[in-house]
Structure formats: structure tokens, C-alpha cells
Amino acid sequence: MGIIKAAKLIFDYVKRDEEEQVEEINRAIDNVTLDIKEGDFVAILGHNGSGKSTFAKHINGILMPTEGTVWISGMDTSDENQIWDVRRTAGMVFQNPDNQIIGNVVEEDVGFGPENIGVPTDEIWKRVDESLEAVGMTAYRMKSPNKLSGGQKQRVAIAGVMAMKPKCIILDEPTAMLDPNGRKEVIKTIRELNRKEGITVLLITHYMEEVVDADRVIVMDNGKIVMDNVPREIFSHVKELKGYRLDVPQVTELAYELSEAGLPLKKGILNMDELLEQLIPYMKKELKVSGEYDSKEKEQSGKEVQKWE
């Protein structure tokens, strides 16, 4: 069993009237089964309403299954006796960092979580130091969070989760409210935590460029898992992704359009270097043919000049 496992997970949002009678039932998660290995970087994609955020809230025990089971490091999230251990194991970072930052000073905010679970004072400050260093925010430890940029605030929120020493971090669209620079800061931080610290990362996003380096990409639609593979394989299916109302990375889109226009390019190109690697041989071939044509034209032109002379 991996660090995150779901078996036949179903979750219904139930709307009730004033008399607590059921008015409407909307199925947000529909029979989802998956297993995520410890140390993996997994991205979950899906349009609004696909069920990806609802699934994320099950991992941290914020929501409980209507049917089925979710385990975190072997712990059943619906077991009330284990819920705090579940939340120590799987930390959650939300869209808006302002909803998670409560301290007046950065270092106090990062230390709040460990203090809340009874970590000794000396250990708290050690964790604060390590977490701020890991996200590149040590220089801002005495600053007010209100004076930080969006990207910096989100890194502080991540540090606060890290100070709890989780094995896994779930990030629910952590860059949705950030500008491009802030998004780059946060994604770089997440990748380094995964690679250097070995922390399992579950990233929920709608920015395709953020997932090209993931170990695995899961696509959800109408509460179901409809695609599950490595990024290159997922982004090889451009038409299918568009059918699920998703975009693809810009360079992948360009490669796809060029391929549709007749260029012999491989599927699933993920970055500009790969695209250039595919295009340069073709361009050299075209230039060579063009050069030969130009040479023949010059030769013929020379003969015509001699003829008239």
C-alpha cells in the first residue's frame, strides 16, 4: 500500500431543506480507486467541478467518504481516533495563503502548527529554522506576512505545513491567485521539497506547465479518473484532453498544430528544447534542398549570360 490509497471512494454533496429533508444529491467523487507511492510527485488535473479538490479534502480528513475508504500511511481517514495522526502525516496548502497565515510575524506563523500539537519549544524553533530555509524565506522570518508578495506568502504557508513534519503535502491550486513570478517561486519550492526532502507531493492545478515534471498525472472528469499516466503520455492525447475541457502546455499545443499541418513531429513534446530538437533536422533538410535549388538556378543563369555574350 502506498502513502495515499483510495478504494471505491464515493462522495455525495447533499442539499437539505429547512426540515432537514434531502432536496438534492450531487455526486462529486464517483468510485475512485488509486494508490500513490511515497516520495512521488503526482499532479491532478480537471476542469472546475471535476472532483479534484473534493478528493484532496478526503486525503486530509476534511471530508469523509459517503462510501469507500481512504488510507494515509495505512490509517483510515474516517477513524476519529486517528484523524490527528492523519493530518500530521498529510499537510494541506490551500489556494489563498491569507486563509492559512495567522501570525503577525513570519517565524511565529511557521511555529504555530508544531506548538499546537505539543512539540517542545527547542524543537519548534529548530523546525522553524529548517522549514524557512527549505522554502527560501529565512531572510523574511521577522517580517509581517502582510508585507509579503503573494508568492512569498504561499511559501510561508508551505513552511508552516512543513514544520509539522508531514510525509505528504497536498496543494489545492496553490498558485491560482498568484502572478507568473509568484507561480514560478511556489512550483520551484514544491519541486525542491519533493526532490531534496523526499516529501510526497499531490499538486492540484489547472496550469499545465506546472505538471510537466511530475512523476504521474491523473485527470479527473465528473468525479471519475479518466486518465492516469506519466506527463508525456498524458499530453500525447491533445484532442482527448480538450474533450475534457483542459488545455495543454503552450509548446505541446504548438507541436501538435505543426504535426497536424504535416510536420513529422513526435507526440507529447513538453518543452521548447524538445521541439527544437525535432524541428532542426527538418529545417536543415529544407535548407539543403533550398540551397541545391538556388545553386541550380545560379548555374542555369550563368549559362544564359554566357549564351547572350
Score class of each variant (00 low, 15 high):
Asn194His: 11
Gly103Asp: 04
Lys8Phe: 08
His58Glu: 01
Leu258Asp: 10
Asn81Gly: 07
Val119Ser: 03
Pro231Phe: 06
Thr121Met: 11
Asn181Gln: 12
Pro97Phe: 11
Asp40Pro: 00
Arg127Ala: 00
Gly49Tyr: 05
Lys8Cys: 14
Pro120Lys: 00
Pro97Met: 09
Leu263His: 02
Pro249Asn: 10
Ala176Val: 03
Lys284Asp: 14
Met137Gly: 06
Ser149Gly: 06
Asn271Trp: 05
Cys168Lys: 08
Gly223His: 04
Asn104Asp: 13
Asp221Gly: 10
Asp76Tyr: 09
Pro249Glu: 07
Lys267Gln: 07
Asn60Ile: 15
Gln95Trp: 02
Val305Thr: 10
Met142Glu: 11
Ser78Gly: 08
Lys52Trp: 02
Met227Gly: 09
Leu275Gly: 08
Leu193Phe: 04
Asp85Phe: 10
Ile269Asp: 04
Leu171Lys: 04
Glu173Val: 09
Ala28Leu: 05
Lys224Pro: 14
Val135Glu: 00
Val106Lys: 09
Val135Thr: 00
Ile10Asp: 12
Ser50Pro: 02
Leu263Glu: 04
Ser290Ala: 14
Arg88Ser: 11
Asn194Met: 09
Leu279His: 11
Gln278Ser: 14
Gly103Trp: 07
Pro166Val: 05
Met177Cys: 03
Lys296Val: 08
Thr69Tyr: 08
Arg16Gly: 08
Glu23Phe: 05
Ile187Thr: 01
Asp76Val: 08
Pro281Asp: 05
Glu123Asp: 09
Lys288Ala: 12
Asp12Phe: 11
Gln300Thr: 14
Arg232Lys: 14
Pro180Arg: 08
Gly51Pro: 04
Asp98Lys: 06
Tyr244His: 13
Glu67Tyr: 13
Asp247Ser: 15
Ile29Arg: 00
Val32Lys: 04
Val93Thr: 02
Leu34Lys: 11
Asn271Gly: 04
Lys184Ser: 06
His58Phe: 00
Phe112Ile: 14
Ile29Gly: 01
Asp40Met: 07
Met220Trp: 06
Gly223Thr: 03
Ile225Cys: 03
Arg16Ile: 09
Asp213Ile: 00
Ile36Ala: 07
Tyr244Trp: 12
Gln82Gly: 03
His237Lys: 15
Pro281His: 08
Gln82Trp: 07
Glu20Cys: 11
Lys165Leu: 03
Met208Cys: 07
Glu292Asn: 10
Ile102Gln: 01
Cys168Tyr: 12
Cys168Ile: 15
Ser149His: 08
Pro249Phe: 07
Val211Lys: 07
Val106Trp: 07
Asp129Gly: 01
Ser53Thr: 14
Ile280Arg: 06
Ile10Val: 14
Asp79Ala: 14
Asp30Thr: 09
Glu286Ile: 15
Ala139Glu: 15
Glu130Ser: 06
Asp221Ala: 15
Val211Tyr: 11
Ile102Arg: 01
Phe94His: 02
Met220Val: 12
